[in-house]
Amino acid sequence: MSREASYLTADLRDMFKHTIVFREELEEQYHDLDQQSQAATFGMWLFLATEVLFFGALFMSVGIYHYLYPEAFEKASERLNWQIGSINTLVLLVSSFTMVLSVHYARLGNKGRLILFLLLTAAIGTAFLGLKGYEYYSDYQENLIPGWKFDSSEWVLDEGLSPTQVPQVKLFLMFYWIMTVIHAVHLTIAITAVLILAWLARLELFSPRYHSPVEVVGLYWHLVDIVWIFLLPMLYLLGTHHLG
């Protein structure tokens, strides 16, 4: 990508000059690579601030409703699969570790290790999505999808809730779906970005001098990880779970 596209004719090259088609290692608006990579990292931190507000609004909403309806929320939380949730937490933490190693080897300029750990990170992230998908499937079987597959009577008969509390159960489950799906979308984007990085690394794009894309994607990956660490207690660990 850093090479000029030499297959273009002179006319076309004139047309595409100064467009996004051309990419230089050092963009023209920067003095040096150091300034450029610092600006890129800074930009990602700003973006993470917006993500905090994005999830923060959701966390606050769940917090308010949990405060209003503790019984229904805890009953509903107990039906979630906390085992898979916990295993997935471990999975994501390990993926953050491999992501850190990718950044480390990018700094050292070790291309082989960089690609190895990037692919490993993507693989572990995909494992998370696989486990999550399995969990969604079991939620589907257990009628835990309000608005689509949901059985009001079982909450009254089996769980001993009053009929007025059933909408509150739906509320909790809806937040569970919204938050985990948005998280999964974030993770999918992160996995895609990591795979693109691996491909670019294979094209010899990164060097100890220039590897800010790896650092930037690394930051994003960790954010996705941290969001899950908040989701686990907020969604899975509300009630008093019985082991076994």
Binding site: S61, I64, Y65, L68, Y69, P146, G147, W148, T164, P167, Q168, K170, L171, M174
Partner: peptide, 16 residues
């Protein structure tokens, strides 16, 4: 999905 996130009849709060 017809969930009452902001609907008082279904436990939600329009003030939110």
């Amino acid at each position: 999905f017809g969930i009452g996130i902001y609907d008082p009849a279904l436990g939600g709060d329009p003030l939110l």
